[in-house]
Design a protein around this nucleic acid. Structure first.
Lengths: 157, 157
DNA sequence: TACAGTCCCATGATATCCCATAAATGCCCA
DNA sequence: TGGGCATTTATGGGATATCATGGGACTGTA
């Protein structure tokens, strides 16, 4: 599975084009669809994004009655309905839809933020505000690279 | 799992490159991604670092609703967002991002400090200050290699 | 005709690759 | 046990490739 790591700030040009960070494109290099999928985010000032495989995985899951609860199913369907496929051009750029740019308040610069299996595209200032707000709290909570999920933590004995 | 032990001081050159200690590279030799992951540390004057496998473990856990509490999940996402992948060059060096160098106040020399499953990269002077500060406390507490975790201690009999 | 979306090529900055060297380490054999 | 040889490391610097970005030309559509 693709893993998107780190933050990269790129310019949005007059035509609405942005370079997808090379590190992110590397994660998608071997896939059949050379591009990304974007959809509106719950975070104000952001766009949600992922690779095409993730979208087809969600889609395929809808055909199995057991994989989603009814509520999850509706949510998945809405996400698919609002998603847009953005193919890479020859230089690894995509063209962001005006509606999403407007919704996220993005202009001039776009901050790609990897969050593991997916990533987001932020208005840099809004992301900075978000980071400033949470950084100290994370530190106080001892958040670090030591934070493994339950299944990966070493056994108690 | 990789285990990083000991401290090594290496030079940071004009291009921002540093050799990762050979002992640390040995721990990563068999992994698919030949490089390390760095992120800002809670310790002022330091950078947190680990191998790529650890990051993918954190990342993959995000897709399972049961492995993290909601707060842990958000924290894990932010850690991934702040992390950077640094591939080894042919000589086992990495290029430290300017932002992290500035944040940790590193210049000239970098001290790699193994702390078990992860390691840190310190400004040597700041590490020395940190050591001096904590040494007396450790002595008072009788800290030594005798300190086994609870699960590994011999039964009370 | 206007407009938006593609495709193509150009360019400067940056990161990566490659080779060279000196020091440190480990190894072998007497 | 110790000396000497061979590897591995850490480091420096130049050459090369990649990346992000800009802009022109072409195409189909309203």
């Amino acid at each position: 599975m693709a893993t998107f790591v780190g933050s990269y700030e790129n310019k949005v040009d007059a035509k609405g084009r942005v370079s997808v960070p090379a590190r992110f494109r590397d994660e998608i290099r071997d896939q059949s669809y050379q591009g990304i999928v974007v959809s509106p985010s719950a975070d104000p000032g952001a766009i949600d994004a992922c690779d095409y495989i993730r979208l087809t995985d969600v889609s395929a899951g809808l055909d199995d009655p057991d994989l989603y609860t009814p509520e999850e199913r509706l949510r998945a369907e809405r996400i698919i309905a609002r998603s847009t496929l953005l193919p890479f051009d020859e230089n690894g750029r995509v063209q962001l839809p005006q509606s999403l740019i407007a919704q996220a308040g993005i202009e001039g610069m776009a901050l790609f933020t990897g969050i593991g299996p997916t990533f987001q595209i932020w208005h840099p200032d809004r992301r900075a505000a978000f980071e400033a707000e949470t950084f100290d709290r994370d530190q106080a909570a001892g958040a670090s690279l030591r934070l493994l999920p339950k299944g990966k933590r070493p056994p108690a004995s």
